[in-house]
Design a protein around this nucleic acid. Structure first.
Lengths: 122, 122
DNA sequence: ACGGTTGTACGATGGTTGTCGAAAGAGAGG
DNA sequence: CCTCTCTTTCGACAACCATCGTACAACCGT
């Protein structure tokens, strides 16, 4: 029995999303970096995010984001692939994710971006 | 010496606002109700918000909002007046507060509004 | 001056959260 | 079958947080 059947990945329905849960999920730098990364890359495996925490901590953050309805996860072989639920979020909270991530990028450029923009270099 | 001089109400500068702090401040139903109320009424005294918590708890929530830069408070005689920092927030996080409050009102109509909209009535 | 109003400060408390390490499960490949 | 990789689960722990009651400070009437 494949892992995708063994453990059910619970995702809230699009019309069940709670904006307070979403805001709480986004008010953490690690989780925000995950969302930021997913906006650039549509789908990534769990271990490929530019965050600096232990694997078990990462699993915890993915669960928070998933149960808030921010991301969707699917299993494929050994990997777990993660996507941003852009359409569902946009339908229920128009402009929210756009505004949040844009605001965050201004103050914390995504890891790997060469220019830090007008941020304090020291 | 008036109270407005006695204790300094610390407000972050407009360019110091942290989007993660703002999101955290907004991810609480009591605080979101405060912001929601302030969008309708430009300025209110502390005790006039339609929330159901103890006064000391309310003070705590005002401090969280103030230190995140969401609200501004000024003293006048016995009262402490609270306003939303709309311009500062809009300049630094364009569209954010608008999207957040709009999303929240859809799922939790402001207290005192007659129609609950298409929400579950029971 | 006195009492009432408004709001804060402090301390306590129960619950939540972010973090990690160790152990284990599931799949891929030899 | 065995091993390696990817990811999860569990237990633990310290930090944080929302909440409250009590005490207190400032202001405003009378």
């Amino acid at each position: 029995m494949p892992r995708s059947q063994r453990r059910v990945l619970t995702h809230p329905e699009a019309d069940e999303l709670d904006v307070l849960d979403v805001l709480h999920a986004l008010s953490d730098p690690t989780r925000m970096t995950i969302v930021q990364t997913l906006r650039a890359d549509p789908e990534r495996a769990c271990g490929t995010f530019p965050v600096d925490v232990a694997p078990s901590t990462l699993t915890h953050h993915f669960r928070v984001l998933r149960e808030a309805g921010v991301i969707r996860q699917r299993e494929d072989g050994n990997r777990r692939w993660t996507t941003l639920r852009r359409d569902d979020l946009e339908a229920r909270f128009p402009g929210l994710v756009e505004a949040v991530v844009t605001a965050y990028e201004r103050q914390a450029p995504p890891p790997g971006s060469a220019t830090g923009g007008p941020g304090q270099p020291h």
